[in-house]
Design a protein around this nucleic acid. Structure first.
Length: 490
RNA sequence: GCCUCCUUAGCUCAGUCGGUUAGAGCGACGGACUGUUAAUCCGCAGGUCCCAGGUUCAAGUCCUGGAGGGGGCGCCA
């Protein structure tokens, strides 16, 4: 650390700051400067200080008898302070080291009468309404450290495998990505929209000279790059203007979309399973303290629930179980047979009974397969072509496509992907069947005209992964500032 | 978009059949204590019962409408 400082050209006052994560494992006997926010001030003597570098607080011991009482009054929950002191072996239980304060400076006062966070448990619903402050809680600081670690691990996973990180466009001129309602992007004056002679909106006068939207998927662009670079992935924001009101949908979310030339559906499943297991293992290795806290939080929360609604496994057990077993792979057709013969189907417990092949699976069916029948992650493949996208490769017999959905307990679909249709004629026919305007997608079709190859890819919902790993249940709690219908606060 | 539940103190909630002065725990504040661990003990303050309208002698409670929030479903990642 001091080595780095030596090379700084500009003096930087924060440079003297020791992070709490570092000081907690430092050797006692040295002076340090720490800065952070007060969690509690006990007994007019013990400050629990947190700077977000880790879950744990640093205990600051104040010599209150020789300290200015008006200063002590300002050490309140939420106040930002700077402490110079000596790190010593703790004289109390509960921590190994503590800092004896030699100098206390209030950086930012915090009026406890109006500060919403109190040294007590708050509901997730309440914290959601004060999302600008919820980072200061144990739960949310843990979630966002885990979220960061997952994001980093994704780049590491792909980089270690020689993938190229592709920045697919966020503004798209294509309205045929086929993944749902889009947000329009325009600089036209909405109070005075220019019209053509026919009365249509005159998009030629818009910023890009055409109608544009926010992307719903980087897949099509990733395919273009994969057919030259072979192994690519995107990791960026994605926007869906669906009126979705659930605990697992957002209007703005982050998606990882690998796309690999020469891969078939089996390679695609292998990549998806390897990646998910790598990411879970990485978090187990690097976020132990946060995971243990989140696990304990879950236990406390589930104490409120009846026995039958509680998890069978603890959070960390669940993650390790996921690593220890191969994901169950089966076709849609096999899944339909299992569901058809399942007890809930026979007893009429499904809201949508399984009657015949071809029906789309409802989330109750997916849950049954994952949570009751197999009790582990499941990859469903080879769905009927009618219920999947135009770009998925037709199987022999032309009834099914080489699609795959990875289903996780509690989350449902965490990955959706497929081997892509690489045959020009077949792709063109499928686009016509599904009313995709081929003339607007010549650039996409060109890859099939010029040196086409089999290839495959998938989309991983980043927040759904964070949900699973943290054991949280509402996707709005694993993204800093969630966007959903009727809400774009902060 | 559909279904359902909720909205009472800063937070979490109780509030009986519609009945007269709306409660608790935690937090905050004041004091005591001073090696505490969301400290403890004593004390004190704190209310537009989400909003609007209606029924009634009387509404936190019943009815209608609206707003906000939770959960489920659909769309999907």
């Amino acid at each position: 650390m001091y080595f780095c400082l030596f090379f700084r050209k500009i003096p930087y006052f924060m440079s003297k700051r020791t992070r709490i994560k570092d000081i907690l494992s430092a050797t006692p006997g040295q002076d340090h400067t720490v800065m952070g926010w007060v969690r509690t001030f006990r007994n007019n003597q013990f400050i629990a200080l947190n700077d977000g570098s880790c879950l744990a607080n640093l205990q600051i011991v104040v010599d209150f008898e020789n300290e200015d009482p008006t200063l002590l009054k300002r050490i309140t929950t939420g106040a930002a302070i700077k402490i110079d002191g000596e790190l010593i072996a703790s004289q109390g239980k509960g921590q190994t080291v503590e800092l004896t304060a030699k100098n206390i400076e209030i950086l930012g006062d915090c009026d406890p009468e109006v500060y919403p966070l109190q040294p007590k448990r708050h509901s997730l619903e309440f914290l959601r309404e004060i999302a600008h402050l919820r980072f200061r809680t144990n739960t949310f600081s843990a979630i966002f450290r885990v979220r960061h670690t997952l994001a980093y691990a994704i780049h590491k996973f792909f980089n270690d495998r020689n993938f190229v990180y592709l920045h697919s466009p966020i503004i798209t001129g294509s309205d045929a990505e086929g993944a749902g309602e889009m947000f329009q992007v325009t600089t036209l004056d909405l109070n005075n929209i220019p019209r053509t002679d026919e009365g249509d909106i005159h998009f030629k006068k818009d910023f890009f000279g055409k109608a544009t939207n926010l992307t719903v998927s980087g897949q099509l662009e990733a395919e273009l790059a994969a057919l030259a670079l072979c192994d690519v992935y995107t990791f960026g924001p994605t926007f869906r203007a669906e009126n979705s009101n659930t605990t697992r949908h957002l209007a703005e979310f982050w998606m990882i979309e690998p796309e690999v030339a020469f891969n078939d559906l089996n390679d695609n499943m292998d990549l998806a399973e390897d990646m998910l297991k790598y990411l879970i293992q990485y978090v187990l290795d690097h976020c132990q303290e946060d995971l243990l806290f989140l696990e304990q939080r879950l236990v406390e929360e589930e104490k409120q629930k009846p026995q039958q609604d509680r998890s069978e496994m603890s959070l960390i057990e669940k993650l390790k179980f996921c690593l220890a077993h191969p994901f169950e792979r089966l076709t849609y057709t096999e899944a339909i047979e299992i569901l058809k013969n399942s007890t809930p189907n026979k007893k009429g417990k499904f809201q949508y009974p399984i009657e015949k092949w071809g029906a789309d699976l409802q989330s109750e069916h997916e849950r049954y397969l994952v949570e009751k029948h197999f009790k582990k992650p499941v990859i469903l493949t080879n769905y009927p072509k009618e219920i999947k996208a135009f770009y998925m490769r037709l199987d022999e017999g032309e009834k099914t496509v080489r699609a795959m959905d990875v289903l996780f307990p509690g989350i449902g679909e965490i990955i959706g992907g497929s081997q892509r249709e690489e045959r020009y004629d077949v792709l063109l026919r499928r686009m016509e069947e599904m009313h995709i305007p081929a003339e607007e997608m010549s650039w996409f079709l060109d890859t099939r005209r010029f040196g086409t190859v089999p290839h495959a890819g998938f989309g991983l919902g980043f927040e759904r992964l964070v949900l699973f790993v943290t054991g949280m249940t509402n996707i709005r709690d694993v993204i800093p500032f969630p966007r959903f219908p009727g809400n774009a606060e902060f």
